[in-house]
Design a protein around this nucleic acid. Structure first.
Lengths: 130, 130
DNA sequence: GATAGTAGGTACCTAGAGGAAAGTATGGTT
DNA sequence: AACCATACTTTCCTCTAGGTACCTACTATC
């Protein structure tokens, strides 16, 4: 499947070596969840729900399971009545810190994107052939 | 909309300050496209198509337009016959390099994720209440 | 005059993600 | 005996991203 000659052709995952990480870490809702777990420490389901205001409980459960399975989060179940569950970020999850930091750094460029968009939209509505 | 007291409640964008960048840079297909543009330099539509083997032409066009509008890519149209179009990454796009680099660095942890998944799957199929 | 080649555009269709709302188990409170 | 709270689960529904397939314009070439 991998030819390296005149035309370099590789499968999509190899065409971009960072894709696996991107799919893993930056899939929908995972960054907000990991962020608040990292910011506010161990917390319960409802607390997460209240902080990430727009997430539905169903999706929150799904993402938390996935994050737990991937080793980013630990779930602790307290068999009380009513039941209590706590979620905490793991060392592996905390290891994403530098990554998040470099993203935060880059965000100073967001206004350049804004500028580019204005410029693009200003250049006639559809100059597709020049 | 922002209360800071006992319960810190903020809108979702603010709950995670890196979300805007994530939505912008790590939406589907954008990383492979930017990656190959950065790796292989200026290239034509069909070359991109051949390198990112699994993308459909429709989606490739959509993403390229979006990347152009956001200022990550410049498109150059040559009115020849048959027409020729070249895409190139901009300085703004190249500025994502350090970001991509830190992601590539983190990817050494991918096997830990694999391990976590095996462990999770091994711990009885559904021990949801312990 | 049929075909090829480029860089798309357009119409149609489907799968999957995600939202809303109700249900579940448990025991305590009123 | 109704009701509450928690942490989900389940059902149903919708919406959109993305795929397939076909169409466009233009000329050279067979």
């Amino acid at each position: 499947m991998v030819f390296v000659s005149d035309t370099t052709v590789v499968p999509p995952e190899l065409a971009c070596p960072i894709s696996p990480v991107v799919d893993l870490v930056f899939s929908r809702w995972t960054t907000p969840i990991l962020w608040v777990l990292n910011e506010f420490g161990r917390q319960r389901f409802v607390e997460l729900e209240r902080r990430i205001t727009t997430i539905s409980p169903k999706v929150l459960t799904q993402r938390l399971r996935q994050l737990e399975r991937d080793g980013f989060v630990v779930r602790t179940y307290h068999p009380e009545v009513p039941p209590r569950v706590e979620y905490e970020i793991t060392d592996l999850g905390r290891g994403l810190g530098p990554l998040f930091a470099s993203i935060a750094e880059w965000s100073v460029n967001l206004d350049k994107v804004e500028q580019a968009r204005s410029d693009y939209d200003a250049r006639k509505p559809s100059p597709r052939a020049r």
